[in-house]
Design a protein around this nucleic acid. Structure first.
Lengths: 201, 201
DNA sequence: CCTACCGATCGGTAGG
DNA sequence: CCTACCGATCGGTAGG
């Protein structure tokens, strides 16, 4: 019981994780349907049939990618949400955390697959995902309520949250790492867009 | 020359347009890669090889769908932009026009394919599309500049426009026709979100 | 995890 | 615009 299947020794290569990473990148680049098992297999140096040793179907690979995506985003934003700072600083930290996952090298493939390929999951898996997304959005609900309580925004309604998450998630479409703006700057500008200029200028 | 190929008599069915419409719907529902020529052919009551009488490749069908999408949106928003109303009313009318195309029955399949499937175009076609999108965004640039000139918003920067278009385009992900909000209401709420409460409350 | 392979299906073409 | 078909490729399996 010392080294169970769920916690392999750190030095042994985790081929399953390699597959998930490669699948995430390819699903992001070419889309789920246009990515073949052979693409994924060759990306990790396997023969064409070998990924099925780790996953029963291509579908299961998508599921793993998508769950990795929502999990990473949730974790990063939760940490920012619980930092104990004032409402505006907390909000900005949450924006930064979400954008880091969406646009940063670590998470962007998983995040993009989550946002754009999850519709290829079957209904049961979709439902599972919706539940996780709802849990995630609760954190934003609280953040907006706190901003309103501090008099920084006028509207913390459901639709306001959808507009905010839209502006946030749409960055995937136009952000370029080599572009003029850093993730940090985008987070600050979005905070200003939603709240208005910083207090006492 | 009375009835040329580019302007067929109104009563003769336009099979090409039928194909574009069916392709748009299927690309929206299943994605470009997961949609087969046979799907499209059968949706318009043709045999499996017959769409190739109208289009050289599947790729060309996507191009037609995407161009139809950007064309319809541009036309609708341009009309609102040139209505000669005051800045805030013009802005709201533009929001409504954009959302009508994105969420209404007429345009939503084309719009969704434009937003989510155009990456399957090849580089030359992508460039063509980028030019059309740039032309489109100029209208929003002007609208935001006018709002700022009227003192209704503080920020009309490039990134502010991207946030706005993000909130706008993301509606595709959550809007449901049978839901509690009309397109009209969403347009008004987004205007308030960007501008703040209507002047003199 | 590899090699060899299966049945199904794909985009596209030929010949009317 | 249809029918019949082509070569290529797909997800997945068997048997090591």
């Amino acid at each position: 019981m010392a080294a169970s299947k769920t916690k392999p020794a750190a030095e042994e290569p985790n081929r399953r994780a390699d597959i998930v990473r490669a699948a995430g990148r390819l699903f992001h680049e070419k889309g789920y349907s246009a990515t073949t098992i052979r693409d994924i297999a060759h990306a990790v140096g396997m023969g064409s049939g070998s990924p099925f040793y780790h996953f029963k179907t291509k579908h299961d690979m998508l599921r793993a990618v998508v769950l990795e995506g929502i999990g990473a985003i949730h974790q990063a934003v939760a940490k920012a949400a619980n930092s104990g700072k004032a409402p505006r600083a907390t909000f900005e930290a949450m924006l930064r955390a979400h954008l880091d996952q969406l646009l940063g090298e670590q998470g962007r493939d998983f995040a993009a697959a989550l946002l754009h390929e999850s519709r290829h999951l079957d209904p049961a898996e979709q439902a599972e995902l919706v539940a996780l997304k709802d849990r995630y959005e609760v954190m934003w609900q609280k953040a907006l309520r706190d901003l309103k309580g501090a008099g920084l925004i006028a509207d913390d309604s459901h639709v306001a949250r959808l507009f905010l998450l839209g502006a946030l998630n749409w960055t995937v479409q136009w952000y370029r790492p080599e572009g003029p703006r850093t993730v940090e700057q985008i987070a600050r500008q979005l905070a200003s867009f939603v709240i208005g200029k910083p207090q006492r200028p």
